[in-house]
Design a protein around this nucleic acid. Sequence first.
DNA 1: GATAAAGGGCTTTTT
DNA 2: GCCCTTTATC
Length: 675
Amino acid sequence: MYEGLNSPQREAVFHDDGPLLVLAGAGSGKTRVITTRIARLINECGVAQSKILAVTFTNKAAAEMRERLRNLTGKKLRGIFVGTFHSLGLKILKENIEATQLRTGFSIQSAEDQLAIVAEIHREYKLDPDALPEKLILWKFSEAKNTGLPMHMLPGYLDETYGIGWGSWFERYQEFLTNMNSVDFDDLLLLPRELLNDHAEIREKYQNHWNYYLADEFQDTNPLQFEFLKLLMKEPWNLCAVGDDDQAIYGWRGADVRIILDFKKKFPTAKIIALEQNYRSTQVILDLANAAISANLDRHPKKLWSALKEGEPGFVYYAENTEREAVFVAEQIHGIQLAAKVPLNEVAILMRTNFQSRAFEEQLRALQIPYHVNGAYQFYDRKEIRDILAYLRFMANETDERSLIRITNVPHRNIGDTTLKKLIEYARAEDLRLWDVFQDIETCPVKLTAAALAGVMNLRELIVRYKSDIHRPGNLGKTLTALVQDLNLEAEYIREGLDEIKLNARMMNIRELIQGIYHFESNTDGENHGIYEYLHFISIMTNDNTEDNTSDKVQMMTLHLAKGLEFHTVFLVGLEEGILPHKRSLETEEDNTEDPTALNEERRLFYVGITRAKRRLFLSSCLTRRSFGTEFESEPSRFLAELPEDLLITESVSGQPESENDILALLTGFNSDSD
DNA sequence: GATAAAGGGCTTTTT
DNA sequence: GCCCTTTATC
């Protein structure tokens, strides 16, 4: 188990009690250190699994950690917590629901729901949404929740500018959530923090429950998460925090690098171990990475090194336009595919923003290269899926009015927007819930057409009929199948004039959803897996339950999603001013001076991108870029100029791809791979 | 309330 | 350029 660990790695694994900070450079084996450390605690120190808490940044990372732990310990995982901060928060909320304002079956409102709520508050206050966009408002709410700052201390605080201040906005929004027995994503951290803070007996319960704590990607922890974690711990603070300040890329979400930089101040007895040997990349790639990041002055100086002395130089391609860039990448990958030395899922196209993926998808499809776009199209965001889930959500939580509004006329029940609006207005005026209005629709003073009345009665009957069934244990998949059949969405989509391709795609998605539900229901692991658990599960499992999608396909994703992953060959695309660094990070609110903090974070993103590559790195930049239908001149990213030229081969013609033989020659490093 | 034409915004990054 | 929302007309 300890074979091949270098001495600082070993030191981290064998560290006993007390706080420990592992400053782990990119590719320095930090996951191995964490998992080996946990495995040692379980197998050799007699620590019960239930005493260990490991928080990761994504569900993907959590799944990988569990897998590695199973292999290392040779045991079934029982009782150990491995998951994201958000899933930990959810667990604690559910376990202590009687101490909160929530009731069993509470909903987690998605980003889309949040927007709808804010739009409704806009209407209530009769404000102009153009003057104060919904997104901006939600942004401020999230910032307030995550940084723990009161509203009026946030930058850009608007006091009474629109007749009401942030504070009253916020209260109204929270009221909406409370009325719907709902929380938003940030509440999954905020409410448990409050719970632990306000209730000594709950706090003590958890402090005695866990003894060993591990926090991955610690540089991206925000103050709220850190406080939450601290409330779960007590002396001797057995926290093993692992992170790399050079890879801090979530400042915009309230993450504060000072939490990792000031670790010693928070925990004076902490041991600090630095891992600087990189096992992932060639020295050339690391030299490029070191050069890229050394332009940031606000960092702890450190230098990654690799035992893999050889390495191909980086390749820089300046494309005439976005399309040529995509053609270049697709043709290079086609060559790799022909050479067959590298599995396609070891090839990644990394980009700053999601919208960039489209051009690459087109060209990859043209060459029939299989690819997978990570995260972009979220399965659970599709219309048909959200419609069906709205039925489930409403049956789980009858106060979830947003879901009821969504399903009222889906499928078509002759209840138009105007009628629905009138019913909602009536409900508001009478201080009733929309569902209460539906219950007594026969005596409702709102004038309805006979068809609309029949529609409401039909919906009411449908909900009542399925609701009791769906709550019966083991009945979730079966009931939902029947419900979906009853809804006959296929006929509805045909009526809407959907073409056959889209129709088939939707029906397939619906089947996939139902299959997923059956799967969830049968994989209980001894725990209850009913409707409540399912809805919570899909709310916090966002984009990564599609494992078979990653096999032998080119991986496309944003730089943020790429953190923690590695690939044989990396294409880092769109290296232009305005893309990376992104234009939003280049402009400040008042004037045109650049914000160095934001710019440094962009540079760290660049660094994260470079360090994903094990053997080959391609960088590309477009001279013109098509944006909103029109072409713009674009300038190469300043980050490219910060790289040493002698480590790069540059091509700036619209040119031919390299021949197959060249590509074969480039790929010879692959077999010596130790990963 | 259904259909078709016109208009406007979209493009940070995610749990 | 595309897609969703708003507006005109029946």
